[in-house]
Every structure is written in structure tokens, then in C-alpha cells.
Design a binder for these strands. Structure first.
Length: 315
DNA sequence: CTAGGATCCTGTCAGC
DNA sequence: TGCTGACAGGATCCTA
């Protein structure tokens, strides 16, 4: 699923298009994708959007909020166009015609037919809803589609006042930018026998890191993902946090990463992976630092990409 | 408490 | 072509 940078990119996109929109009707196409009575959000206005780690909070009038978690394959698609063909041409032009992220960013401002978190497959611009659409939220000036192939994601209704008490939100650790290296070092000592990659994927340890940025941060710090968490020095912890911040910053600036199930707020594709990723999905290609071939291994049950030369188990 | 594995679900792809 | 198993930018639940 989208990780922190992708959710933040979606949030920024949706802020432009959904704030002050009023929800007219909610259609639930998959019962488990929408938790809570839909009637509670209908007739309410979108006041703003917040993000906690990978969770997106849509605050509504009437003291109601919707928590959206995209998990692995969730997407949010905002559609306020009446002419799909025009939209298709415009978005294809933006997605594939731009030469750099700066151009793509500039195009967001001009985009009038907007998408929010979509699907860059060949069928992306087909009619919505599609067979992966789980929830349709009709607003006065457009429609928000929640698509989710694997049904792991969800939209959950709760009082705004209780968002921070939600079990998931409440247990989140700080995001990398706000992590105290010494505290993280202590946590690593507590989980000393787990592979470091498994530990940094734990949202209760550091919020927002997922499989991409775990691999990127470990590469940045020159740490092998199978190293035991307890074996890291304080300096290595600092370097790891620095790597997480830098790769996420770069990704947010690039509009998120490109993936099969994620595109940016206006339907254009983020291009973090192809432009900035050092190791993720680069197996078989040379390391940018040393030229040795990047390999893919399995750590903590997840596909993991490393440079076997820059990231060693034993120093 | 930690550590590891199974699990939710659908789709795609490699290998018979 | 059709089957089968592995795997997938997540997080939780269950076991030991």
C-alpha cells in the first residue's frame, strides 16, 4: 500500500478538491470496507484532512470523522469530471508527457478534473466504479471512490473527538522526523533479537515506514536488514533515521512513488521509485554507490532489496 | 514482555 | 491452455 509519503501526497491532493464539499450519499459495495453507519456521515461537509502515519483522517461537520487506511492496495480516486474522454486525454498527457517532477507538480495546480490516489494500469481511466470499488462517496461537486483490490483497507466512522483514542492511532510511534535517536536505540535494545527490518516496519516503533522506505533507509545507513536490532550502535540508529527522513522527503517532493496500485492526487503518477529509489525493485541492477548488483532476499516475510556489498551482516 | 508465523483477500506471474 | 504455488509498498492475531 501507499506508505507515509503516498498518503501525504493523497492528503495534499484531496485538500484541494474535497474541502467544503458536502457528502450527499455513501454507497457501500463491500460491507467490510466501511465500518460504522454510513448515515452518520451523509449530509455533512468536509472540513479538513489530517494524517497520522499511514492513516488519513477526513474531518466532517457535526463532529464526525472518517479514518481511511489503504493498507496494501487501497486507492482514493476523486472524480469531478463529466467527460471521461477529456479527462483521460488530459491525465495521460500529464502522466507521461512531463519530463520531471517539477513539471508534474506544476500541473497539479492547473488540474481541474481531479483524481485522488488512483490506479495507473491500462484500465485506470475506465468508468468508475470498477470491480475493485468498495465504497462510493458522492459529494455535491464530485465523487470519491475507495478502491481496494485485496479488501485489507477500510474507512471507519468515528467521532472527531475520539480519533486520537482509536486503537491504531493511539499506538502509533512518532514519525521519523520526530524520533529521538536515543529512545529508538532503547527500543532496539528491547527488541534486540529481531531483524532490524522487522522492527522499523513496526508502526509502534516508528510511524509511517513501509517496505519501500525500510529498504531505502537501511541502504542509506549501510545496514543489513537481517542484523539484529540490538546490534546497532547509536550512530547507526541516527543514520537509519536520517535515511528514512531523506528518502521520505524526496518521495513527498516527487509526489509519491509509482506503483501498480498507486498514483497521485490528480491521477498523474508519482515518480519517486524510478528517480530516487536506490534499492527498492532494483534487483539485478548495479548499486549506485559501488556498482555491485542489487539482490532481492526475504526478511521478516517481506521482499527485501539490498546491496550485498554496502550492507553486510558482519562488519 | 518478545519472536515468529498464519491470516485477511484478490490478482498476477512463473513454472510445470 | 490450465493448474499450482509464490508473492504482493499492511497490520493484527495467535502461539510458544
Amino acid at each position: 500500500m501507499p506508505e507515509l509519503p503516498e498518503v501525504e501526497t493523497i492528503r495534499r491532493g484531496l485538500v484541494k478538491f474535497c474541502v467544503h464539499e458536502k457528502i450527499e450519499e455513501v454507497q457501500i459495495l463491500c460491507a467490510k470496507s466501511f465500518i460504522g453507519p454510513k448515515e452518520v456521515v451523509e449530509e455533512h461537509e468536509v472540513l479538513g484532512l489530517r494524517r497520522y502515519g499511514k492513516a488519513l483522517i477526513v474531518d466532517l461537520s457535526g463532529g464526525i470523522s472518517m479514518m481511511v487506511h489503504l493498507r496494501m492496495t487501497g486507492q482514493l480516486v476523486w472524480d469531478n469530471t463529466s467527460d471521461k474522454k477529456v479527462l483521460q486525454q488530459e491525465n495521460l498527457g500529464v502522466a507521461f508527457g512531463a519530463e520531471n517532477s517539477g513539471l508534474i507538480s506544476a500541473s497539479v495546480e492547473k488540474c481541474t478534473h481531479a483524481f485522488a490516489g488512483g490506479h495507473p494500469s491500462d484500465t485506470f481511466f475506465d468508468e468508475l466504479p470498477n470491480k475493485q470499488t468498495r465504497v462510493v462517496i458522492k459529494m455535491n461537486d464530485g465523487t470519491l471512490y475507495f478502491n481496494d483490490q485485496r479488501k485489507f483497507g477500510f474507512i471507519k466512522v468515528m467521532p472527531t473527538a475520539e480519533v486520537e483514542q482509536d486503537k491504531f492511532i493511539a499506538s502509533l510511534a512518532p514519525e521519523p522526523w520526530k524520533c529521538d535517536a536515543e529512545k529508538i536505540y532503547q527500543v532496539f535494545q528491547r527488541k534486540k533479537n529481531s531483524p532490524i527490518k522487522a522492527v522499523i516496519l513496526d508502526q509502534k516503533v516508528i510511524a509511517g515506514i513501509g517496505n519501500i522506505y525500510a529498504d531505502e533507509a537501511l541502504f542509506y545507513a549501510g545496514i543489513h536488514p537481517e542484523r539484529k536490532a540490538g546490534s546497532l550502535s547509536l550512530n547507526e540508529v541516527k543514520k537509519l533515521l536520517e535515511g528514512a527522513c531523506k528518502s521520505m522527503d524526496a518521495s513527498i517532493n516527487a509526489g509519491g512513488s509509482t506503483m501498480a496500485t498507486y498514483v497521485r492526487a490528480d491521477g498523474t503518477k508519482g515518480d519517486y521509485l524510478e528517480k530516487f529509489a536506490q534499492v527498492f525493485r532494483r534487483e539485478g541492477q548495479p548499486c549506485y554507490k559501488c556498482g555491485v548488483e542489487i539482490i532481492k532476499i526475504r526478511v521478516a516475510g517481506r521482499g527485501t532489496h539490498i546491496c550485498p556489498n554496502c550492507q553486510r551482516l558482519v562488519a
